[in-house]
Write a protein that binds this DNA or RNA. Structure first.
Length: 204
DNA sequence: CTGACGATTCACT
DNA sequence: GTGAATCGTCAGC
């Protein structure tokens, strides 16, 4: 499996990268256990100009500092005290772009995913929604800062390219606080994929 | 030091 | 549709 490289992550257009992440494989690897999921839903966060981003207005805190670092790094944070949300840092240093992975279609290590999530059987919800993605993949806040060019967590190329026509967009979920930016179509997902989270309300 | 709250999920009405 | 779970983070004192 070929990893996506630094050039891929360092590019300036976060929406373009988000588009290109769809259909690719997220891999986690630790304690001799590997899990693999195809990325079917993402959200782009456009740095300091984006009111929905933790880095809006150039806000820097110990937690968000990761986003100002090198592209191709994991940014994981705890949401609502219980959910670990996994993001990918993009663009050059000091430009805090990030992409939230919101849903995966299980590809490998499904037994382990079932064990981690406590589900008796495989179903569409196993890695649907950002909290469930992390749970199924075994990702937690302690992985914030992990290098995606390494072997623990990485994104792999995949032969099957996603056609542009198969990608749909909508406003992002749970960012109503972001005023005029709340309506931006920065949530991207593979049309008709049953693992995509939420209700189906297509924008285009 | 303190309190308010979140890029959510799930069970329940 | 509504509400509880649950705790690290951060602004404000």
């Amino acid at each position: 499996m070929e990893k996506l490289d630094l050039e891929f992550y360092e590019r300036p257009n976060v929406l373009r990268i988000a588009h290109e992440l769809l259909g690719r494989l997220l891999v986690t690897n630790w304690n001799g256990n590997q899990t693999i999921g195809r990325i079917v839903e993402v959200e782009a966060y456009d740095g300091i100009v984006d009111k929905a981003s933790h880095a809006y207005g150039g806000r820097r805190t110990p937690r968000t500092e990761i986003m100002y670092g090198r592209a191709g790094t994991a940014y994981v944070y705890l949401c609502y005290g219980l959910h670990h949300l996994f993001n990918i840092v993009t663009n050059k240093r000091d430009i805090p772009h990030a992409i939230l992975i919101r849903a995966l279609e299980p590809v490998g290590g499904t037994e382990l995913m079932l064990k981690r999530t406590g589900k008796p059987d495989m179903d569409y919800s196993i890695a649907s929604g950002p909290g469930n993605v992390s749970k199924a993949m075994g990702i937690a806040t302690r992985h914030s800062g992990v290098d995606l060019l390494g072997n623990q967590i990485f994104i792999a190329e995949d032969r099957h390219a996603i056609k542009k026509a198969d990608i749909a967009s909508s406003p992002r979920i749970g960012v109503d606080y972001a005023a005029e930016d709340a309506g931006l179509p920065y949530r991207l997902f593979i049309r008709d994929n049953p693992f995509v989270s939420g209700k189906k309300k297509l924008v285009k």
